[in-house]
Amino acid sequence: MPTLRVNGEQLEAADGARNLLSYLRFDLGLTGTKYACGEGLCGACTVLVDGQALRSCMTSVGAIAGGEVTTIEGLAPGARSPGDLHPVQQAFVEEGAMQCGYCIPGFVMSTVGLLAREPHPTRGQVQEALAEHICRCGTYVRILRAVERAAEGADAVSAP
């Protein structure tokens, strides 16, 4: 039975062939990670595995055995006000970067992954990192602003 860590908790999955997205949503109740296309084309199901953005709908639990999974619920557990949020989540709130919000957890996770490897991304790098995400409400204008705001924050944090 494959073992993995999800949001810091060590778990043993009963079935290595289990789809990772279904495992997170239905077996663990972590419904913040969304199904939208089921073929890795829209990014709604994005989680971090060992810090890297991954499409959970295209992955089995066994394929990431031993890995450390972070879902949207794991970014700032127990946050009660925007001040407690992860800086990327905070930036999305401050820019009002959402409408229906269904795609937003995926965008947030990819952004966290991007800023971890590239704290000062160019507009082109941001667009590349988020090119495989879809927001049908069309809030891209605000999502771009939110990512840039979060990146500026990363600047401030890393500055001496």
Binding site: T31, I72, L75
Partner: peptide, 12 residues
């Protein structure tokens, strides 16, 4: 901003 923004960025 939105009154329901927190829930939308935390997956709640």
């Amino acid at each position: 901003g939105r009154v329901d923004a927190m829930e939308r960025v935390t997956g709640a």
